[in-house]
Amino acid sequence: GKMTGIVKWFNADKGFGFITPDDGSKDVFVHFSAIQNDGYKSSDEGQKVSFTIESGAKGPAAGNVTSL
């Protein structure tokens, strides 16, 4: 299901970062391709987002990331 969290950091040059879930669980990796914004796929530190957890090649990753 959908979770909410805060972007801990995001490196636009490398195209990835981490989200800290609101439920206190482990930080989740986020790749720019998962960000659902139109246009520039980046996110700012401290941005509140909703997301799903997908199982990626390197473990859990955020999917369907949407700014709230």
Rank of each mutant, 00 (worst) to 15 (best):
G1F: 10
K2P: 10
K2D: 05
M3E: 05
M3N: 06
M3Q: 09
M3C: 11
M3P: 04
T4D: 01
G5V: 05
I6Q: 07
I6W: 10
I6F: 10
I6E: 05
I6S: 07
I6T: 13
K8I: 08
K8C: 09
W9F: 08
W9E: 04
W9P: 03
F10R: 00
F10I: 04
F10N: 02
F10W: 14
N11S: 10
N11L: 05
A12S: 11
D13Q: 13
D13R: 12
K14W: 11
K14H: 08
G15A: 02
F16P: 01
F16R: 00
F18M: 07
F18H: 02
F18E: 02
I19W: 02
I19L: 05
I19Y: 00
I19D: 00
T20D: 01
P21N: 03
P21T: 05
D22N: 06
D22G: 02
D23T: 04
D23Y: 05
D23L: 03
G24E: 02
S25W: 03
K26G: 11
K26F: 08
D27I: 05
V28L: 10
F29A: 01
F29Q: 01
F29G: 00
V30G: 00
H31E: 04
H31G: 04
H31T: 05
H31Y: 07
H31M: 05
S33P: 02
S33G: 06
S33F: 06
S33V: 04
A34W: 04
A34N: 09
I35E: 02
I35C: 12
Q36K: 11
Q36S: 12
N37V: 11
D38W: 13
Y40G: 11
S42N: 11
S42M: 13
S42G: 11
S42W: 15
S43Q: 11
S43N: 09
S43I: 15
S43F: 15
D44A: 15
D44S: 15
G46F: 11
Q47R: 11
Q47M: 12
Q47H: 12
K48G: 06
K48C: 11
K48V: 09
V49F: 03
V49K: 00
S50P: 01
F51V: 02
F51M: 02
T52S: 08
T52D: 07
I53Y: 10
E54G: 06
E54F: 12
E54V: 14
E54D: 08
S55K: 13
G56M: 09
G56N: 10
A57D: 10
K58G: 09
G59C: 09
G59P: 05
P60T: 09
P60N: 08
A62W: 03
A62Y: 01
A62V: 03
G63H: 14
V65D: 03
V65I: 05
V65L: 05
T66V: 13
S67I: 15
S67F: 15
L68T: 07
L68C: 11
L68A: 07
